[in-house]
Design a protein around this nucleic acid. Structure first.
Length: 768
DNA sequence: TAAAAAATCGTTTTT
DNA sequence: CGATTTTTTA
């Protein structure tokens, strides 16, 4: 009796202590959200409103109220977010509890479940996950096998059609039944065969991880019950970016207990292009009429000026939940709008700004440079390198997307899942092993005719009458290699096996033979894969090679980069979501680039999403914000003139310091009067090279422009000469005219058509 | 069959 | 322009 009482006292005591810790430092709305544990709850969390704090404290509160951690499912947008979530919960309630929470991305959590339940849906548990590149390669293979012309139907386009269909949960059967025109029919045809191909390969693409999860839950009431009871409390972060399939899984899982909490901000929805459906968040209260709604509108991150700017911009969107962010922070500095000549000038102005304030009131890690497209990073990198500032680029070419790394991984994938024909084809001639296209074609046909896997067709090479003796030997040798290490893998330790295996593949020899620095780098990257595996096995002693593959296939570049070091951070606006920096630069605010307009057409919704993207960018800044644009920019090796982004004009002028605005307006009016903007552009494009030559010696304050390679002096050309031009590329000389300084060559370029070039300026190089 | 040359394509943004 | 894919040639 007394013992029981004592226990109770202790419990109450710990509870009280934790409750104190859990609710400490929260404002009224935040505390409200943290205390609302049961039933549907939507938290509309504005930028910088302490969203992560609320999520972590709410989960801590669930645990504190005796909910078992394994009954909690937290779905986040990135692995990194999940990791941070766990970490922050751990500081509140300890690692013992936080480690047992199911926290991860949709894809990683579902992959984990699907491996466990693979048999239920007719897969092997060691299935391979195809990323977008693998997906494309697989579609190419299918089109090849089924004889669909890749000229008429670009695989890239087919891929995106199929992926979009999957995002909307339309399977091949349904797609085919709805296909009217010939394109749709062809896509449907490829789709059907692609689905079969994936199953044959025991592979799933990213979209399948969601679809198969739905399929699994719909398979039987037992399975559904099992997971409904497992995940009694569900939390979804970044809910505005969920798609239809994700919505359905969440809906199914939470049906029984209705303990579903979603967190998001419709103003930060930036993934419509990937199938995100903003209606999920807008209609949450329709789906759950009894849902409680909590709005977090106090911003703790930015100055008043920055918030006002963001607010004035987003007001231009029609489809938006009206809300007012407010802050107690100081008014802060005006936002600087910087006009630049070109991307080089832009880069140096940004970097010089950084250099100026480092050491005074800023550290290197306080800066982030954001841009719309990855391609923009190049000039910024150059300027940062010149200024000797350490920097890290998030995104871009991921380590795991490098050719040699993918090759090495394909070798390993084959070991784990030998049904995976894509991986097999990828490495069959890496290095070349005497199996050319003809032999390969025969083996593929054999596998198709006998309805066996490609691996098996290789294995039966000696039964294939079309194959030459040499090809049979080569195929057998290849199969023996894989079989040997498959066996080794079962007996020996993973690290040693993988090392021997990759050595035995001939990759090392191949790269050593090439001998260039690049080849050396590539081999080093493969070594890096091996040490990556070693680390993984060390950290997860019970794990298999398959577990390793699973982990990395769902890891984005964003997750692996260390963002804690002291460096400037460069990334796209999309990657910047959820982050914050004292000083933020947003580069390339030009019409056409941001908002990005591709292929001429863009509808209202696209423009609104671009606007939200800028909104996300602006609200990353704590104290200082710089917006820059260049007057000309090189795209696809061609220089284009650009107008400042229309978004700049939507931002409240009272929040901006835009010195060149007035001057620009005058100049623009003047030139439009004189020439008309079209003529201006025409002249500019035609004579750009000469123009740039004359103006090349800009005077930079701290980061000068990089000197261009000197143009080779070439006196004359004759008709028929093949020449190379630094900007227009390859072309053929079709005529000459003028004399002396005025001497010009008429060149028909492969890509840019006919141009008259003054030899005095043009950097022509004779090829033939 | 494999290396070299030529042509083509692409740039949004990512799990 | 640069990377990748296709075609040509040895």
């Amino acid at each position: 009796m007394s013992l029981k009482l004592k226990n109770q006292e202790n419990n109450t005591l710990t509870l009280a202590l934790n409750q104190d810790k859990i609710l400490k430092g929260l404002n009224t709305e935040q505390a409200d959200a943290v205390k609302s544990l049961n039933g549907p709850l939507i938290i509309v969390a504005g930028a910088g409103s302490g969203k992560t704090k609320v999520i972590t404290h709410r989960i801590a509160n669930l645990l504190d109220n005796g909910i078992a951690p394994w009954n909690i499912l937290a779905l986040t947008f990135t692995n990194k977010a999940a990791k941070e979530l766990k970490h922050r919960i751990a500081t509140l309630v300890g690692e013992n509890l936080s480690d047992k929470i199911w926290a991860g991305t949709f894809h990683s959590v579902f992959a984990r479940i699907l491996r466990y339940e693979a048999k239920e849906i007719g897969y092997d548990s060691n299935f391979t996950i195809y990323d977008a590149d693998d997906q494309l390669a697989a579609i190419r293979s299918v089109m090849n096998m089924e004889g669909v012309s890749q000229q008429h139907y670009p695989p890239q386009q087919i891929r995106s059609f199929i992926s979009n269909a999957k995002n909307q949960m339309i399977d091949a059967k349904e797609y085919n039944s709805k296909a009217i025109n010939s394109l749709d029919k062809q896509v449907g045809f490829v789709y059907k065969h692609y689905e079969n191909y994936l199953r044959q390969n025991n592979a799933m693409d990213f979209d399948d991880l969601l679809l198969n999860m739905i399929y699994l839950l719909g398979k039987s009431q037992d399975v559904l019950n099992k997971y409904q009871n497992k995940f009694k409390y569900i939390l979804v972060d970044e809910y505005q970016d969920t798609n239809k399939a994700q919505y359905i899984v969440i809906n199914q899982l939470s049906k029984a207990h209705q303990n579903i909490c979603v967190v998001g901000d419709d103003a930060q929805s930036i993934y419509k292009w990937r199938g995100a459906d903003i209606r999920n968040i807008l209609d949450f209260q329709k789906q759950y009429p009894y849902a409680k709604i909590v709005r977090l509108e106090q911003n703790y991150r930015s100055t008043k000026t920055i918030l006002e700017a963001a607010d004035s911009l987003i007001k231009n969107n029609k489809n938006q939940i009206p809300k007012t962010l407010w802050t107690q922070n100081k008014q802060g500095d005006l936002i600087e709008v910087i006009s630049c000549d070109d991307e080089k000038d832009e880069a140096s102005k940004i970097v010089n700004n950084i250099v100026k304030s480092i050491g005074k009131y800023r550290d290197i890690r306080d800066f982030a440079i954001l841009y719309r497209t990855n391609a923009q990073s190049l000039f910024l990198e150059n300027a940062l390198r010149f200024a000797k500032l350490p920097y890290v680029i998030i995104g871009g070419i991921s380590f795991y997307k490098r050719k040699e790394v993918k090759d090495a991984l394909a070798y390993i994938k084959i070991l784990v899942n030998h049904y995976d024909a894509e991986s097999l084809l990828r490495i069959i001639n890496e290095p070349p092993r005497g199996l050319g296209n003809t032999s390969l074609q025969h083996i593929k046909e054999y596998s198709k005719n006998n309805n066996i896997t490609l691996y098996e067709a290789f294995n039966q090479a000696d039964m294939n009458s079309h194959l030459q003796g040499r090809a049979v030997t080569a195929a057998k040798k290849f199969i023996n290699l894989i079989d040997k290490y498959k066996t080794d893998l079962e007996n020996d330790n993973i690290k040693q096996t993988v090392m021997n295996y990759l050595d035995d593949t001939g990759l090392a020899e191949m790269y050593k033979e090439i001998g260039t620095e690049e080849a050396n780098d590539r081999w080093n990257n493969i070594q890096q894969v091996i040490s990556d595996i070693t680390t993984f096995i060390k950290e997860n002693p019970e794990s298999t090679l398959g577990d390793y593959l699973q982990q990395i296939s769902l890891l984005s570049d964003y997750d692996e980069k260390d963002t804690s070091g002291n460096h400037v951070t460069l990334m796209t606006l999309h990657s910047a979501k959820g982050l914050e920096y004292p000083t933020v630069f947003i580069a390339g605010l030009e019409q056409g680039l941001f908002p990005l307009i591709r292929g001429g057409e863009s509808d209202k919704d696209d423009l609104e999403e671009e606007r939200r993207l800028l909104y996300v960018g602006i609200t990353r800044a704590e104290e200082q914000l710089y917006l820059s644009y260049a007057q000309r920019r090189t795209k696809f090796g061609e220089t284009q003139f650009a107008m400042p982004s229309s978004f700049l004009r939507e931002i409240d002028l009272n929040t901006l310091n835009w010195p060149s605005l007035k001057r620009m307006t005058e100049k623009k009016e003047q030139s439009e009067r004189q020439l008309g903007i079209n003529t201006l552009n025409k002249i500019a494009n035609k004579g750009y090279n000469e123009y740039s030559q004359v103006n090349d010696d800009y005077s930079y304050s701290q980061v000068p422009s990089q000197a261009k390679a000197p143009a080779p002096k070439q006196e004359s050309y004759k008709v028929g000469d093949i020449v190379n031009h630094s900007m227009f590329g390859r072309g053929m000389v079709t005529g000459m005219k003028g004399d002396g300084d005025m001497k010009q060559a008429i060149v028909r370029f492969d890509k840019f058509g006919k141009k008259n070039l003054m030899l005095k300026f043009a950097k022509l190089e004779k090829i033939k």
